[in-house]
Design a protein around this nucleic acid. Structure first.
Lengths: 226, 226
DNA sequence: AATAACTTTGACGATTCCTTAACAAAATTT
DNA sequence: AAATTTTGTTAAGGAATCGTCAAAGTTATT
């Protein structure tokens, strides 16, 4: 399901337990810390995807933990606060938290907000960060719209590029010619399905995918790594 | 782009218009209903992929509409509520809504949540369809159009593949040759029924199904596991 | 407007697959 | 037990699909 890691920093064990239970039920991996320093070291040892941070902690102020975390890592943080004044909330947000939730909270609301924030971060990372797609001797950097074959930049036409990406992103999945036409050319394409063949051949040559871009006789094509 | 259908049930026309505008800009198909009963009948006539449902409606309570919808169809619902208490939120969620959004809302957040929920629903549907079909020493992954015999990929022709799938999906059921011709070759096939025999023999060899793909003398063939 | 780049089509050979025919083997009936 | 029907097996011609090339058509660029 999901495999995002959540770190809960909360000194009231019952609340920490509720959060742990609720998020694990939704498929998250959860670890709990009961003091600020403990939480900080856990975050450093194994950076989670998101931190749920209590405002009031026995040793360090939650806001300070938040600052420490955001200074070193770019991990999204949600602050848990007792029902407070607007000033408190502003203070929390200024310290670097991405959202805040007031106690008592609705567990499903917390999960929903966590999902929203994680998704936002994924989007940002997809767009800005280099998450190259490496498939054997091919490396795709979508941000650059470029494909490298052993460090050599391939010059692909638009259709070739989209087709290749589609195959590389869905290894082993069979695509019929009409499915590829629908997906890449658009649902209103009226031409011959043999058009796909031609592009597949060109990709095979340019990207040296002869044995890996496999013909499934009578069905279509699929990309089989290795 | 996307071709998901959204149904907005909201009596305040300005809000419905904003939602319609926002989602259509993102490529969704949007239809609006201004009363609960109207919305219910629209959902029944042409089931949307997701419903945005106002909590306060002139004729029926939003929660009741939600119940009516979730009882009959498995359509995800997002409740739109005025800023309410935790109890209200819980009430809404318990009535079967998948998420709730408090007014005034940020249009982009609404779109984001809708996307999240639609994606989650797609995942669930995909997962149930994509579960590999395991039959003794054979494993079928339809998405890949591949059949494994003890981790060895079999190379099957189109007719062989379709025949095998048909047998594996209906264990112990007898198929006459004409039934198989109708189903796999098509109702307009004019050839000899012996064609089926040939393919059955080839499947027996390739998939090592000698004792399991059984001849029912004078009738046809059936697959008997074990 | 002219050029270049890309996409699409048509044709033809190569490959794979399907079907038929013929005969042997097995099961059922006479 | 012989005859008849049904099924298993093999081989080969024919049909469908695919790979490839060249060229025409389209779109973008200069």
């Amino acid at each position: 399901m999901e495999d995002k890691k959540i770190l809960v920093i909360e000194d009231e064990k019952p609340i920490a337990d509720i959060l742990k239970y609720g998020f694990e039920k939704e498929g998250f991996q959860v670890r709990c810390a009961y003091t600020g320093s403990e939480g900080f070291s856990m975050a450093r040892r194994e950076p989670p995807n998101l931190v749920l941070l209590d405002w009031m902690l026995p040793d360090i102020n939650g806001v300070d933990v938040c600052r420490m975390l955001t200074e070193q890592y770019r991990i999204p943080i949600i602050m848990l606060t007792a029902r407070g004044t607007v000033e408190d909330k502003l203070y929390g947000l200024e310290s670097g938290a991405d959202d805040y939730i007031t106690k008592p909270f609705d567990l499903r609301e917390v999960v929903a907000r966590v999902r929203t924030i994680l998704r936002r971060f994924d989007k940002v990372r997809e767009a800005s960060e280099e998450a190259p797609l490496v498939c054997g001797h091919l490396t795709v950097i979508e941000r650059e719209h470029s494909v490298y074959k052993h460090d050599e930049l391939l010059s692909l036409t638009p259709k070739e590029y989209e087709l290749l990406i589609c195959f590389l992103k869905h290894p082993r999945q069979v695509f019929t010619r009409t499915a590829l036409l629908d997906q890449i050319w658009g649902y209103d394409f009226a031409g011959d399905t043999r058009t796909v063949d031609i592009h597949v051949q060109r990709i095979r040559k340019k990207a040296e995918l002869d044995g890996m871009l496999v013909t499934v006789f009578g069905v279509g094509y699929k990309y089989v790594p290795q």
